[in-house]
Nucleic acid binder design. Structure first.
Lengths: 131, 131
DNA sequence: GCAATCAACCCTTACGTTAGGGTAGTGTTG
DNA sequence: CAACACTACCCTAACGTAAGGGTTGATTGC
C-alpha cells in the first residue's frame, strides 16, 4: 500500500520524509537552508516537495552523521559521488577518484575513533558498576 | 628540594593536566568556569593548580564524554559518586543508590546507541567503497 | 647577593561556530 | 475545518579562537 501513486513523479512532503528517515522537520529544513539537501520542488503554496532520489540522498547523509562530518564536508562528498555516478565515460575522473579516496581514508579514521569511544565508554561503565 | 616535594602533595599546572588527559586547555578552563572541575587552588599569580585527585576526576569525565552526557549531567554523576564514596556508613544511601542506578541505565542505553552508530558508519563505509 | 631578562606558560575577556531546537504568527492542503 | 507546512526569529551547549596582558623560574650580568 505505498500510497504515493499520485502520478508518475512520486513526491512527498517534508513530514513524510522526516518519518522515513527519522530526522526532524527542523533538521531537514536546516539542510535545505544550508544547501545540503534542497527540496526538489515546491508546491504553489510553498510546501517543500521531495523525491525518492532525495530520500536516498538523505539516507546517505544520515549514515554519515555518526562519523561526525560537518555539513560542509557531507556536501562535498555528495558532490563527489554525484560526479562519479554521472561520470562522462572517459573523462578525467582521476582527481575525483582521489577525492573520494581521501574521504574513505578520513571515514576509516573516524570509524576508528568511534570504536575507541566505545571502548572508553565500556571502561566508564565498568567503573560505574564498581561503585 | 624545598619542603613539600615529598611526592604526595604534588600539584600541577593546567598544561600538564591537559597533556595527561588529552583534553585541551580551553576545555579544562571551561570545566572550571562551569564548575565541573574547579581547580583545587591557585598560585599567587593566578595559575590554576590541580592535584592527582583532580586528574582522576578528569579521567572519569573524559571517559564519560563519548556517551554524550551534558556537563550538568556529569556534574550530577560525580556528586553521586562522591556521596557514595564519602558515604557515612549506615546513612540513607538508598536514594543515592537509586540515582546511581539510573545513571547506569542511561549509560547502558547510550552505549547501545554508540554501537548502533558504529554499525551505521560501517554501512556507510561499505557504500562508499562501492563507488 | 640581587636585579634584570627571557622563554614558556598561563590568565581573562569576549565574540564566533555548529547543528539544530523552539516559538510565534500565518498560510496551505485535502 | 483539521493537519500540515511556511518563514522568521531567538536560543543553546561546548568549546574554538583571537587579543592583550601577567606569572614563573631559570639564567645572566653586575
Amino acid at each position: 500500500m505505498t500510497s504515493s501513486a499520485t502520478g508518475s513523479a512520486v513526491t512527498m512532503h517534508i513530514g513524510e520524509l522526516a518519518e522515513k528517515t527519522g530526522l526532524s522537520l527542523r533538521t531537514i529544513r536546516h539542510y535545505d537552508e544550508v544547501g545540503l539537501l534542497k527540496a526538489s520542488a515546491r508546491t504553489e503554496g510553498g510546501f517543500r516537495l521531495y523525491t525518492q532520489e532525495d530520500h536516498s540522498r538523505l539516507m546517505v547523509i544520515r549514515r554519515m552523521k555518526p562519523l561526525g562530518f560537518s555539513l560542509d564536508e557531507m556536501m562535498a562528498l555528495l558532490k563527489v559521488i554525484d560526479t562519479m555516478q554521472g561520470g562522462v565515460a572517459g573523462s578525467n575522473n582521476t582527481s575525483v577518484r582521489a577525492e573520494l579516496d581521501a574521504f574513505v581514508a578520513e571515514a576509516v579514521e573516524r570509524r576508528q575513533k568511534l570504536q575507541d569511544q566505545l571502548a572508553m565508554a565500556d571502561e566508564f561503565l565498568e567503573l560505574l558498576r564498581m561503585q
